[in-house]
């Protein structure tokens, strides 16, 4: 038949609904994550910590800044102060809740900033290769040569105490580590046949990075970055402990650990509390990151 009716034309190109569309990568990852009890438990802990920290100003049972000379270092279980009071008589539960804000902030934000900067640098170095790669990666290696704790302390020390300075130095500390991962994953993807096929189709490097490289490298880089959140929290606590991060009377877990240190023989349980929270948070982030890594593995 030569005459093509509109019906026949419609049959030749069935509507999109008729096409089977497989679940995408993101949906697969979420599905696998939901089936992983450890990752879900860790996610629940992280969520709880974040909710409590964010809502802390409205949740705290007592004023976290009100000192009382008569109720210094009261033990856990004291009426009115379920988790006791610190060396200045401030309610510890309220301070721990409010302190979570800065601790989590200092854990997540530097890693996030470093993730964006380092991914851009690493992907550029990995895809461009050659001289560009050498220039970027050798510069980064200079920073990488210092132990991260030392680098964070040195930078913070040079910049001075304060949240913004601590944030900056932590970001700088994490850029080399994430950039290295980004560069190696990108180099791997760049050598793959599908990138060669895309180059053979005449696509510009920008289009290839956007369409073919980004989707394949951002997952592994992100997983690696999430594993650094706990490190960032501990480093930030360390900086505060040394007096380089958050300044008193602002509550922050590392800083609280520092000030309660003097009470370690009088009230060891009190002194350990901020440390326990740091520990729980970093474990939760690490377990979640492990789950994410497992969920992203393609069969």
């Amino acid at each position: 038949m030569l005459v093509t009716s509109p019906d026949a034309a419609a049959a030749a190109t069935p509507p999109d609904a008729a096409y089977v569309r497989s679940r995408g990568h993101a949906a697969n990852v979420v599905r696998k994550l939901l089936r992983n009890p450890i990752a879900m438990g860790a996610a629940a802990v992280i969520l709880l910590l974040i909710v409590v920290a964010v809502a802390a100003p409205w949740l705290t049972p007592a004023d976290p800044f009100e000192t009382s000379m008569f109720h210094r270092l009261s033990p856990i279980g004291t009426p009115g102060s379920p988790l006791g009071t610190d060396e200045l008589g401030r309610d510890l539960l309220s301070r721990l809740m409010l302190g979570g804000r800065l601790s989590l902030f200092m854990g997540i934000v530097p890693v996030l900033l470093a993730f964006f900067i380092a991914s851009a640098l690493g992907i550029l170095a990995g895809y461009a290769g050659g001289l560009t790669n050498s220039a970027i990666m050798r510069t980064i290696d200079v920073l990488y040569a210092f132990p991260s704790v030392l680098l964070a302390i040195a930078l913070s020390g040079a910049l001075g105490a304060g949240i913004v300075n601590a944030l900056t130095s932590l970001t700088v500390v994490f850029i080399p580590q994430i950039a290295r991962v980004a560069e190696s994953v990108t180099t791997q993807v760049r050598r793959s046949d599908y990138v060669d096929a895309a180059r053979a189709s005449g696509a510009s490097p920008f289009a290839i990075v956007r369409v073919h490289v980004l989707g394949n490298v951002i997952g592994p880089i992100f997983v690696y970055a999430t594993s650094l959140i706990s490190v960032s929290m501990i480093l930030a606590s360390g900086l505060s402990f040394l007096g380089l991060g958050v300044t008193p009377p602002q509550p922050e877990w590392g800083l609280m650990l520092n000030t309660l240190r003097t009470a370690i023989y009088v009230q060891p349980a009190l002194a350990a509390l901020p440390g326990v929270l740091i520990f729980i948070t970093s474990i939760a982030f690490n377990l979640f990151s492990d789950g994410l890594r497992a969920a992203m593995e393609v069969k």
Binding site: Y194, V211, H212, N216
Partner: peptide, 9 residues
């Protein structure tokens, strides 16, 4: 397999 982007339909 290597010549197809694993993240693309």
């Amino acid at each position: 397999y290597a010549s197809l982007n694993p993240r693309m339909t």
